[in-house]
Computed example of a mutant assay.
Amino acid sequence: MRPVVLVSYPDPFAAEEAKSLVESADRSIAGMFTQKYLNHSRYGVGSGKAEEIKEFVKESKAEQIVVDEHLTSRQIYNLEKLAGVQVIDRERLILDIFYSRATSTEAKLQIELAEIEYEMPRVRENAKLTSGGERAGKGGMGEYVVDVRFRDLKRRMSFIKEKLKNAQRKRELYHQQRVRIGTPVVSLVGYTSSGKTTLFNLLTGEHKQTSSNLFTTLSTTTRSLRIHNEHEVLLTDTVGFISRLPTYMIDAFKSTLEESLAADLILLLIDVSEGLREIRIKYTACRSVLEELKADRSKVLVVFTKYDSLANPEETTRQIAEDLGIPNPVAISSKSGYGISKLRTMIGQHQYVISASK
């Protein structure tokens, strides 16, 4: 594994999530630094902290610095010049994880679109930095190199968007066919590593890869599910949400997520094995994404997962439900099977599932 220096916030949740991202990207943490503000103009971190990091990099032989925040091209350039190693920001790290996880053609296109959105604002700034502040030189036909690069990115973006539109049209045809047949769709959504794929495997008998790493699932998978031999529904597993995900990354996956959120029932999974503060942050992040994608709140059923890991499960889940303002959550354990039969029954009896199957 590539040894890196991680720079994050002193907030425990932010720091732990940053560590999980680094580990999910197959890197090892040689050392960690925290700072309250990561938006200082020169390096992102303050000048004193940057000097500390530089000395640590020399001693530890770390090969990369990961900063858990958005950095401009200039901030990255300045910190790389000071420390003598590659610097990447949070967004670049997430893109790297996405690249390593993508399996379907559509997921790869969506990630490439997000990559272009990440690169475009940096093209001109990078050109200035590499040419000593002057505008990058002219190439063939008297055009500036930066303009050629910018135009290439825009052309590539148009091509990818057209390909994704074609994929979306195919999904819309599938959706119309499903409506005609009358098979309800149930989607699993939630924060990354909340147990969506484990539950999906349990309900459908599938063997999709599960992992404690973030973003194990990037492509949606749909399988049929029979509810107590009465109803047949289609169950969809989706990409996990995460806090501080830039809008352009959500937009890149929008077509896939919107199709999932057009389901007749949305099961929002919340991992209750964590502390109340962490649960609150993750629940708020999920709600924000659902609102941004204009999901119908009346179709959302909250499911508490990993119930078996609680020492005092009934009291703990009651407290969590009160804190989050959730009236009737379903508590389950995919590991022990607790609550699974009840969840199946609730899916089958939900008004939107019943109306879709008529």
Rank of each mutant, 00 (worst) to 15 (best):
R2K: 15
S8L: 03
A14H: 15
S20D: 02
S20M: 09
A30Y: 09
T34V: 14
A50G: 07
F56N: 00
E59M: 15
S60T: 14
E63G: 13
E69D: 13
E69M: 01
Q75K: 00
N78Y: 08
L79H: 00
L82K: 15
L82R: 05
Q86W: 03
R92I: 05
I94C: 05
R101Y: 01
S104R: 11
A107E: 03
Q110H: 07
Q110M: 10
A114K: 06
A114V: 06
M120W: 06
V123E: 09
N126K: 14
A127R: 04
S131T: 14
E134M: 12
M141Y: 12
Y144R: 10
F150M: 12
L153F: 15
L153R: 02
M157R: 15
K161L: 14
K161M: 13
A167M: 10
Q168T: 13
Q168I: 07
K170A: 15
Q176E: 14
V189S: 15
S194K: 03
L199P: 02
L202C: 00
T204R: 00
K208Y: 07
S212A: 11
S212Q: 08
T221F: 05
L225E: 04
V233L: 10
L234D: 04
T236R: 09
T236I: 03
V239D: 04
G240F: 02
T247V: 13
S255P: 01
L257T: 00
D264I: 09
D271E: 11
L276Q: 10
E278P: 01
E291C: 04
V302R: 01
V303L: 10
K306R: 15
Y307K: 10
D308C: 06
N312G: 08
E314P: 01
P329L: 14
S333L: 06
K335N: 08
S341K: 13
R344C: 05
R344Y: 02
Q349R: 14
